[in-house]
């Protein structure tokens, strides 16, 4: 059963690397991906999130690190 936060993305196919504002909600102030225990995502969604963040970083839509 998906938990509360999982409803936010509903399905991993909705996680898009171009949706930077959505991805930012799952990053800490340093620009690092939050752990699953903090994001509350399912395993599949967390993997999709990690991939989307890494794609966004490569395309310079998100920073690799925020000092």
């Amino acid at each position: 059963m998906p938990n509360k936060t999982d409803n936010y993305v509903a399905h991993f196919q909705r996680i898009d690397y171009k949706d930077v504002e959505m991805l930012k909600k799952f990053l800490n102030p340093h620009g690092k991906i939050m752990p699953r225990r903090r994001t509350g995502l399912s395993a599949a969604n967390q993997r999709a999130l990690a991939e989307a963040v890494k794609r966004a970083r490569f395309m310079a839509l998100l920073p690799f690190i925020v000092r």
Partner: peptide, 25 residues
Amino acid sequence: LRYLVIETVREDIQAAPRRAVFASD
């Protein structure tokens, strides 16, 4: 300058409305 080719789905990913739920517990 830079490009990225990804495999995706035909449907528009951002089409469905999303509910705002806080990431934190």
